[in-house]
Every structure is written in C-alpha cells, then in structure tokens.
C-alpha cells in the first residue's frame, strides 16, 4: 500500500554520505539502496517519516520531519495545543502503539 507521496519531507544530501549503509538497513520501506558504496534515494514516496535513517546517519546527510503518522495523535495534539502526540500510552487512543 502507498500513501500520500507528495507530502513526504525526506531530504538526502548525497554529498555528505559516508557510505555506512545504515539508512538502507533501518528503513522499513526500502527507501534507500546502496550503489557504488554510497546511499541513493530509490523510493522517496514510500517514506513514512519514522526518522530512523536520519537518526542513524552520522554525517547528517538525511533530514526528515519525523513523527508518528497518527490522526488521533494529531487531533489530540491540536486539542491540547501541542505538537502531534501519539496518544498511544493512554488507553483512550487508537491502537497506534
């Protein structure tokens, strides 16, 4: 299944890649692949913005607005006047966590 691809905020600066390959390993949607010992963005639209790649990129070549794509969390955040917070530690939210 694919989601709203044009909304994805993932950015990759190939010039800063050190070729460690961690982004390829941690991405659950195969957004990155290794080519000539460098990472390449092969399926940006599949990104779910979990942030795993950016957090594990030592040279900081990856940026993304990481967060949980959870409507209940966004609503909870909007009602509480905060950032989207996945309400998954309360019994009240959907099963996002």
């Amino acid at each position: 299944m694919r989601y709203i691809e044009s909304a994805v905020t993932l950015e990759f600066d190939a010039a800063r890649c050190n070729g460690c390959g961690l982004c390829v390993q941690v991405c659950p949607h195969a957004v990155f692949a290794m080519e000539d010992r460098r990472a390449v963005l092969v399926d940006r639209g599949a990104c779910m913005e979990c942030g795993a790649c950016a957090r594990n990129c030592d040279p900081g070549a990856i940026s993304v607005r990481a967060g949980v794509g959870c409507a209940a969390g966004v609503l909870a955040g909007a009602l509480a006047g905060t950032e989207p917070t996945c309400g998954c530690s309360g019994d009240s939210s959907s099963s996002c966590c």
């Binding site: 694919r2 989601y3 709203i4 909304a7 779910m48 409507a71 966004v74 989207p84």
Partner: peptide, 8 residues
C-alpha cells in the same frame, strides 16, 4: 506506512 506529513 502512513507519514505524519501525509496525515496532516
């Protein structure tokens, strides 16, 4: 598979 930006 849903992204925060897409959900927003």
């Amino acid at each position: 598979y849903t992204s925060l930006s897409g959900v927003l």
